[in-house]
Simulated scan of single mutants.
Amino acid sequence: MTMQGKHGAEAGTEELRQEVDRARHELGETVEQLAAKADVKAMAREKVGQARDRARDTAASAWEAASSEEGKAKARQGGVVIASAGAVALGAVWLRRHRTSRSKPQLRWGRGRKAPVQVRMRTGQKRAVTVRRTGRR
């Protein structure tokens, strides 16, 4: 066994104290980081702030683009495209209704054809509960 003098023991103790202080400091930082991750309200506030900043930036760039002559020309072109698409859709709807109203055969109830009626029966019942017309005459 070796014997250490008073100076050697104090040096080892001082190193241990510094090591413990470093470990406490690192542990404190780790705890602060974990607490920050666990603070949902603060994280939500931060996300809201980021979203608000992005929205402001986007709005500012949109205002700049809209106020320029190039932006106004694009808006006019977009309006023409939207109006054209609406006209085409309206024409398609009108054409479909026009064709179906002309091409529908008149319903005749003769042999092999059933009248457009809906009959509702309850389980175990022999008479109809409701009889309702479903088509045109």
Score class of each variant (00 low, 15 high):
Q118N: 11
V88W: 03
A73G: 04
E70T: 15
A59H: 10
Q118E: 14
T123N: 03
G71W: 00
A55I: 09
V88L: 11
W63P: 01
T13N: 05
Q106R: 08
V119E: 06
K74Y: 04
R132V: 08
D53S: 10
Q125S: 15
V119A: 03
A35H: 12
W94T: 06
R52A: 08
A59S: 11
L107W: 00
A115N: 01
P105Y: 07
V48Y: 12
G91C: 01
P116S: 02
Q77W: 02
K6L: 10
W109E: 01
A36C: 03
R56Y: 07
A73W: 02
V88I: 15
E32W: 04
V93S: 08
Q125W: 10
Q33T: 10
H7C: 02
R102V: 02
A89R: 06
R96D: 04
R111W: 00
R102E: 02
A75G: 02
K104T: 06
P116Y: 01
A11N: 11
A36P: 00
V129F: 10
A59R: 07
T2M: 03
G135N: 02
A87I: 03
A36M: 09
R127Q: 12
E29H: 07
T123Y: 02
P116G: 00
K47C: 02
K47M: 04
G8S: 13
H25F: 10
E69N: 12
A11Y: 09
L16V: 12
V40T: 15
A73I: 09
S101D: 14
L107A: 02
S84N: 14
